[in-house]
């Protein structure tokens, strides 16, 4: 008789294992989360600063920057860059 419910419910226990070991693992997870949140925050601040910087530039400066960016892109991108 085929049963729909698999019988593996007891294969992994629902217990909590070794307390100190679990605590150490939790510490690692928590640190990773903190690191992730910090990275996100840094990325956000960097973006804000970039927006600020560009908004203070004149039209000519913007064009010049774009030009130099494209030049470096062309050097790097090879086939794709030279098409443009």
């Amino acid at each position: 008789v085929h049963s729909d419910d698999s019988n593996d419910e007891d294969e992994i226990s629902d217990g909590d294992g070794d307390e100190t070991e679990e605590y150490e693992k939790w510490k690692v997870r928590e640190l990773q989360r903190i690191q992730r949140d910090r990275d996100e925050e840094e990325e956000r601040v960097r973006e804000l600063l970039e927006i600020q910087r560009r908004s203070e530039m004149t039209e000519e400066q913007l064009l010049a920057e774009k030009k130099s960016f494209l030049m470096s892109e062309e050097g790097n991108a090879g086939a794709y860059g030279s098409k443009a």
Binding site: E9, E11, D14, D16, G17, W26, R29
Partner: peptide
């Protein structure tokens, strides 16, 4: 940090 059991899509815990 307690352990939990999660049933995934294939039905295993």
């Amino acid at each position: 940090f307690r352990c939990i059991r999660v049933k995934n899509r294939s039905g295993s815990l």
